[in-house]
Design a protein around this nucleic acid. Structure first.
Lengths: 208, 208
DNA sequence: TCCATATGACCTTTGAGTAAGTTACCGCAG
DNA sequence: CTGCGGTAACTTACTCAAAGGTCATATGGA
């Protein structure tokens, strides 16, 4: 029987692969893993579902590939900033700035790494765990330094602060997605103002 | 044909309803809406799926009922604290403390209100929107006060800070779920230490 | 005996994954 | 330059499993 849209469209393998990866990252990052179907990835590219399967084998492996791309970029950038030797809140701000610049063309990239709907086992889960571990280790290092500068050494306190710190990243990226008119530089400036505000705040009598 | 487990078990309607609500809240809160099946709610109670449907009609309505219960408790408590007139970071800490005490028996309750896998339309979505709006309004009020105390009035700055503040709540509850040995009082004390640490931190030269 | 409480077995939809076949580009013989 | 096979790029049309939701029927307690 006739198959009107069949046959190659002349797009070489590498190009399609990149196209799929880009679209999938956008959808996974904005809708989450669970809410993203493979067909929904294929549609905006104008290809069919089996194409995606022929390139990546399974939804899990597709997610793994997106994760690797995103995680590698983020981890490398954060490690680069860590090596510059800056410490304390300043290191935090510099990291934030680096991430914002990196995320400017595709802010949803970040969301993928901390997607709560991602599968908890399988290849993708392992890739995700390895990158979040790498990023958490960097955060731990930075937060640990900051905390010891102000005299906090309790391991659980530091551990809680690391969670808080990462979630601050998360919420700022979320906020950014809701305010797409802002650019990376504006985001960083805003963070500087917010940090300054918090350090200026008074705890009142709660410490008593 | 014979139906071995059929027939009433002598549990009155109100009791079952409460049982289902409790189990569903636990599962929705820990696994998220998408990953929780109606059958999984029925199983630990020892009843069958159609029972849940006969009580709540649909998964969406079940989620709505859980949301209403949780949201009402949280909103009422936060409003009560707001009315005591405490301001600044102290108000933040008092709110945190109130929430921790409320959440002590069921920390997963909080997660439901900010579940990203929850449906975006339907009855449950409306209930969720109304409670998150109520809670966000309170957060906005508190954060706005705090910010104006330190001289920040920009609406976008305040809006971003509200996102950050709520996500701090979120991450602390998450951390608590990972450290079930901690009680509410210990959590509050930890928060006091963390807040104190942050206000003591130095911004360095970034402000330049 | 009556009916609220209960269930097994079903229907339906959705989405992951697959099989088998179709078409167009591309290198090469004449 | 033209025609022709090989293969890479593509699609339609399916299977299968999981989960939401329904229905007819069974049973224990008042």
């Amino acid at each position: 029987m006739p198959r009107p849209n069949a046959g190659t469209k002349g797009v070489p393998r590498a190009d399609r692969e990149e196209q799929i990866l880009e679209t999938a990252t956008r959808l996974f990052g904005t809708l989450g893993f669970a809410a993203t179907s493979v067909a929904a990835v294929a549609e905006p590219i104008g290809i069919s579902k089996p194409m995606v399967y022929s390139y990546f084998g399974s939804k899990d492996r597709l997610y793994g590939a997106c994760l690797r791309r995103a995680g590698e970029q983020l981890a490398v950038e954060m490690e680069r900033i860590a090596r510059t030797g800056v410490v304390g809140l300043e290191r935090g701000l510099r990291t934030l700035d680096g991430i914002f610049v990196l995320l400017e063309p595709q802010p949803w990239m970040w969301r993928m790494l901390f997607d709560p709907t991602a599968p908890r086992e399988g290849e993708a889960a392992e890739v995700m765990a390895s990158y979040t571990a790498r990023i958490t280790a960097l955060a731990h290092e930075g937060v640990g330094e900051l905390m010891s500068l102000v005299g906090v050494t309790d391991a659980l306190d530091v551990s809680a602060m690391v969670s808080v710190w990462i979630s601050i990243f998360d919420s700022l990226v979320d906020w950014w997605l809701d305010h797409p008119d802002q650019d990376a530089a504006a985001m960083t400036q805003r963070c500087v103002r917010l940090f300054a505000a918090v350090t200026r705040a008074d705890l009142g009598s709660v410490l008593a």
